[in-house]
């Protein structure tokens, strides 16, 4: 498969997954606002902090009101990780590989993009933001389902799954971080009904509340951490994402699992093994935020290794050597 094509499949899926997760962030916060005794303003600032570009936000908006933050993270085309920007990038990537993906997938990316683009021009979209974020999630699910069922599960498909799961693992860690890093300091809430409500909201935003209850019944912070980081069966849990991502890497290279033929496999394999040799209790003792921070750094290294291994277009030796920068 062409390196450029693999790169586009991978990023198309990362961007779609990213858009979905931004909607999830927003959704969890809208739910928290409804149940919270906190001031509305304090509720929205953390979201900007966790998702990214505080400087850009402050320059452009200043005031972290609900409206501003939603506008910024959803429709601001200057912010590269807004839902709209993600869809533009996903579609550009999809456009460059239309002959590789199924027509159904392409049509879904296009429809998804049109949905967000039209909403961006519709001033009433924010009034029904909950419905809108639901639609974003559904559109992403539909895309993922179509990818599962209309594309051959060959090399290209494995790049798509790799992109989606790498992105998802990173974002699940951030969803957890929203609660842990930014809400926990309100010590007076710990163990109160509010605390419970907040943990439920976190699980819900990862579509995990029901599956969590089947496994743990009661909501406790340790078990939520256990579930979202270590569970190997829940598809949005970090443990699940890393395991399947590693499977895809091995399917791409043809190397048996447990052996490593390239940098990407080694980096991801190492991260996965590290996860296997620790548990929720240890994470809580050493600090959940610190753990997640470190994890996100490692995920960036995995991303770099994937780029180096499969996508980097290195100049060739010889008279016709030419160097191109990848996107």
């Amino acid at each position: 498969m062409l390196s450029r094509v693999a790169d586009s499949i991978y990023w198309m899926c990362r961007y779609i997954e990213r858009a979905e997760n931004v909607a999830r962030f927003m959704d969890v916060n809208l739910q928290l606002v409804l149940d919270s005794i906190m001031l509305q303003h304090e509720q929205w600032k953390p979201l900007v902090k966790v998702t990214g570009d505080v400087d850009l936000f402050n320059r452009k908006y200043g005031d972290a009101s609900q409206e501003n933050v939603i506008q910024f993270l959803t429709f601001d085309s200057d912010y590269p990780n807004s839902i709209l920007s993600c869809l533009i990038s996903a579609r550009e990537n999809a456009r460059s590989i239309r002959e590789i993906i199924s027509s159904e997938m392409w049509e879904q990316v296009n429809k998804f993009y049109l949905l967000v683009k039209d909403a961006a021009q519709d001033s009433s979209a924010l009034d029904r933001s909950h419905d809108f974020f639901d639609e974003v999630k559904r559109s992403s699910h539909l895309f993922t389902g179509l990818t599962m069922d209309t594309m051959s599960h060959g090399e290209g498909w494995h790049f798509s799954r790799l992109g989606r799961l790498i992105e998802r693992a990173d974002k699940t860690s951030r969803i957890l971080d929203v609660k842990y890093f930014l809400l926990l300091p309100q010590v007076e809430y710990v163990g109160t009904p509010y605390d419970n409500i907040q943990w439920s909201a976190v699980l819900k935003s990862a579509s995990g509340l029901e599956m969590y209850r089947k496994r743990f019944h009661q909501i406790t912070p340790r078990q939520v951490v256990d579930f979202l980081i270590f569970d190997r069966e829940f598809p949005r849990a970090i443990g699940y994402c890393l395991q399947k991502a590693e499977d895809s890497l091995h399917a791409i290279s043809g190397t048996a699992s447990g052996t490593y033929s390239n940098l990407a496999e080694r980096k991801l394999g190492r991260l996965n093994v590290d996860l296997n040799f620790t548990d929720a209790q240890a994470v809580i003792v050493s600090g959940v935020h610190e753990f997640l921070d470190h994890f996100q750094m490692k995920m960036n290294e995995v991303g770099d290794a994937i780029f180096e291994t499969f996508f980097a277009m290195r100049p060739l030796p010889g008279p016709y050597s030419y160097s191109y920068s990848a996107q």
């Binding site: 498969m1 062409l2 390196s3 450029r4 693999a6 791409i252 499969f310 277009m313 060739l316 016709y320």
Partner: peptide, 18 residues
Amino acid sequence: VEGRDLVVNDGYVQMRTT
């Protein structure tokens, strides 16, 4: 393919793959 996917290498046109 785009131009950047192709190179002249070893006297032939070749494409860069994974």
